[in-house]
Amino acid sequence: MRMCYVMAVMLLACISCNNGAQQKKGPFQFLDRLSDYHFFEGDLKLLQPRKGVTSYELATPLFTDYAVKDRFIVLPEDSVLTYAGDGLPQFPDATFIIKNFAYTDTLHQKVMIETRLLYKDPYDHGWKVMNYLWNKEQTEAERWLLGKRIPITLLDDNGEAHTTLYQMPNTNDCKRCHINNSTLTPIGPKWRNLNFTRAGHSQNQLQAWAGMGLIKNLPDLKQVAALPVWTDSVHHSVNDRARAYLDVNCAHCHIRGGDAFNTGLFLDYESTAKVPGVLKSPVSAGGGAGGLDYDVVPGDAANSILHYRMNSVEPGTAMPELARTLVHKEGVALIAAWINEMPKR
């Protein structure tokens, strides 16, 4: 009899353990097709957001082979972004961030390449990544883990044609840039990088969002940091624009806790170094440093490793390491100007 009792207890323990696992829904599984999410209305490739899907832009965006990018954020119903200081908004669980990559072909047509999703999984409150590859017919994008090298001929911002093998990242590549201190996070939509007025809009983007009821606790905009628009030479100095550019293009890795923590070169906008990289020797760059001695040589871009690596497309040398097969001429020119205007030492 006693034995039966023990058995019953064991049985209960076992059931409760199993139940626990079942009651909590499993981790989020990304759907097979982009259209399965119903983010958009009408022809999928037009990316017309349905209600609740909000398009946004960044003051200074990441360069990806002159790709044309569309960005959206999808908050669950009755949820808002919460402002709690600089950096990223506090996103509610079940937020999607959508970033679509396309290029302009030689006929000036927009050709869809890939769509990247970030999802904040209520299961563990962590962000997850997935990528979708557009089909040739441009009617659908399919879930695609592996990454792909895609031959394209694109027009750059000046209408000049470039033929290249576009690098669609695999899901681990995504993590490389999106992980800081072992936690996956969004990179782009920091308050400072959302805090500007989009081209063709009359209202500041954050103000507009606040008006739509998408943000909680947003202080007066004067108190919210603003990242300079890297192309805006009217309102911003070369230094400010260069630091904004480096922040967005480099600092996801070149930040304490980031993938390039080991290099000791920190390029985030908030970096304590007033001028990062100046007369700093490389640590583990190997041949990637091109035989040069310092990351930044004031007044001498041509002898600065930072400039050298941004100006290269060689694997092992090119920076950023991923998702760039062409040199961003305009970006490199800005960094060159920034270094060259520093007083020589």
Binding site: P282, G287, G288, G290, G291, L292
Partner: peptide, 12 residues
């Protein structure tokens, strides 16, 4: 044959 800093570099 280290490329970086073979000649004249301070570190490495």
């Amino acid at each position: 044959f280290a490329k970086s800093g073979s000649f004249g570099s301070t570190w490495g």
